[in-house]
């Protein structure tokens, strides 16, 4: 077996293994789990009811439009108390936290955020019944924030 052929085979097997590792990594994300625990105080966060709306491709990481909508009737007995936005690959992952209530009428906020890397933007919502829900959106950023100088 020539050295070239050996190198070629090794690189092929590396490429075959890489995607599997990535998927496994995405499913078990200790950093996200730790962050969520810190925010919720250990309460389990379920996926759903929260929609994170961002452009899938953002050309400027300094100002990425973000809209978060939570499915809630926003009544006195059933409303969203808090929405927290996370960008795990930013130097400070907690972007902002918004407090809402039955006065809000609609559980929706729109703002612009900085993204230091290509990543999932995660929003977690605390409901008045004490349950936590989350949603996320993957954003590809072509010009990253926090890299000037």
């Amino acid at each position: 077996m020539s050295a070239d052929r050996r190198r070629f085979l090794i690189s092929c097997s590396a490429m075959a293994v890489a995607p599997i590792w990535t998927v496994a990594h995405a499913q078990h994300n200790p950093q996200r789990e730790a962050l969520l625990r810190e925010i919720t105080g250990g309460v389990e966060v379920r996926i759903g009811r929260v929609v994170v709306d961002t452009p899938p491709l953002a050309d400027n990481g300094h100002s990425v439009p973000l809209r978060v909508v939570v499915d809630s009737p926003m009544t006195a007995t059933d409303h969203v108390r808090r929405i927290t936005v996370l960008a795990e690959r930013n130097p400070r992952p907690v972007v902002a936290s918004y407090r809402l209530g039955p006065h809000s009428g609609r559980a929706e906020i729109t703002t612009r955020i900085r993204l230091a890397d290509i990543q999932d933007v995660v929003a977690v919502a605390e409901l008045s019944d004490g349950n936590w829900w989350m949603g996320s959106a993957h954003v590809i950023v072509t010009e990253l924030a926090c890299l000037e100088g």
């Binding site: 972007v95 936290s97 918004y98 407090r99 209530g101 900085r114």
Partner: peptide, 11 residues
């Protein structure tokens, strides 16, 4: 009726 607590991740 509304409160925002913001960090450096806000533009």
């Amino acid at each position: 009726v509304f409160r925002a607590e913001m960090g450096s991740g806000v533009s």
